[in-house]
């Protein structure tokens, strides 16, 4: 009895769903960004699992996971800078109070 690809994919799908749920329902912009990181992690688990089970092109998935990690780290850094900026200008980081672009 070995770990099958389906088990890993379902685990990653569960993590992705929970991350999406958090990104849509949490109030603090910091936690929203952290939930997006959770979704990135779920995608990386998928890529690593596919590369583990795929045979000849075994490492391609891991290279893609490296690039995803770079992009997610950049995204998080910028979002944290935006959170600091918002707190300084509006004194809040609650996403439901940040409605300046709503018309």
């Amino acid at each position: 009895m070995e770990i099958t690809l389906n088990q890993v994919l379902v685990l990653a799908a569960a993590m992705f769903t929970i991350g999406l749920y958090g990104a849509l329902t949490r109030k603090s912009i910091v936690i929203v960004v952290m939930c997006v990181e959770l979704m990135f992690s779920a995608v990386n688990i998928n890529l690593v699992a596919f590369s583990f089970y795929s045979g000849l092109e075994a490492l391609r998935g891991q290279v893609f996971a490296i690039f995803i990690m770079v992009v997610s780290a950049c995204e998080l850094g910028l979002c944290m800078a935006i959170a600091i900026l918002l707190y300084r200008n509006r004194e809040t980081v609650a996403v439901d109070e940040l409605d300046v672009m709503k018309w």
Binding site: N6, A14, T17, L20, F52, Y53, A58
Partner: peptide, 26 residues
């Protein structure tokens, strides 16, 4: 809504026959 989304995702994953090659990384 979250549970329904996960159900749809899980059903899709389970119903697809994923091609599995030789596991070199084992």
């Amino acid at each position: 809504v979250m549970v329904l989304f996960f159900g749809g995702l899980g059903f899709t994953i389970v119903s697809i026959e994923w091609p599995v090659g030789e596991r070199l990384l084992l």
